[in-house]
Computed example of a mutant assay.
Amino acid sequence: MKLYERYDNIYRSNIELIRDNQIKVDPLPIEGEDRWGVSAVFRPTLPLEVWRDLEQLKTVLGQQHAYYHENNVHITFRSLEAYRDNIGSSDELIKLPMS
């Protein structure tokens, strides 16, 4: 699946939340901040059975794993570098190899 198809699928599957303004948007980053330049966080609603089964698996898997709770589970898509306010056209980090 191509990247744009993935984002289109995410958008279509969340359109009701977007229409109802049930999404949270982070404030714009500022220069020098450690946050990533672009990110989108989705908080899916998972069936209760998932949480029940996860509780049972904890006894087998141990405490070495990170476990989420239904009020903090999320999926994050982010860019590949931290936020920078001014990026010049000759910036080494954005140059693409010529083929």
Score class of each variant (00 low, 15 high):
A66N: 13
Q64W: 08
P27M: 08
A40S: 13
I23R: 12
A66K: 15
R35P: 02
H74G: 02
S39P: 11
K95R: 14
S13T: 13
M98S: 15
E70W: 09
E70K: 09
G88N: 10
K2W: 06
N71Y: 08
I15P: 15
S90R: 13
V50W: 03
H65N: 14
S90C: 15
P97M: 01
D20I: 08
F42Y: 12
V50E: 02
N86S: 14
E16C: 06
E70V: 03
Q56R: 15
L3F: 07
A82P: 02
M1H: 12
Y83C: 03
G88M: 05
N71E: 13
E31P: 00
E33V: 02
I75M: 13
E31T: 03
W36T: 03
K95E: 07
E33C: 12
P47E: 05
L48W: 02
V41C: 14
V25H: 01
Y67G: 04
S79Q: 05
N14E: 04
D8Y: 06
G32I: 06
P27E: 10
I18R: 03
Y11T: 11
R84A: 05
R6W: 13
L80S: 08
Y7F: 14
L17I: 10
V38H: 15
T76M: 14
D8I: 07
D26W: 04
A66T: 09
N9M: 09
H74N: 06
L48F: 02
Q22H: 08
M1W: 05
T45H: 08
G37K: 07
T76D: 09
M1P: 07
S39R: 13
A40Q: 05
R12A: 11
K2H: 09
I18Q: 00
Y83A: 02
Q56M: 13
E70D: 11
K95T: 02
L48Y: 05
I10Q: 04
A82M: 09
E55V: 02
A40E: 06
G88D: 10
I94F: 01
P47G: 02
D91K: 02
R52T: 03
E81Y: 11
Q63L: 07
I23L: 15
V73E: 01
R43V: 03
G32K: 04
T76L: 12
Y83D: 00
E49G: 06
L96G: 04
E49Y: 05
D53E: 10
N71H: 09
E92S: 10
P29A: 00
K24N: 14
N21W: 06
E81V: 04
K95H: 07
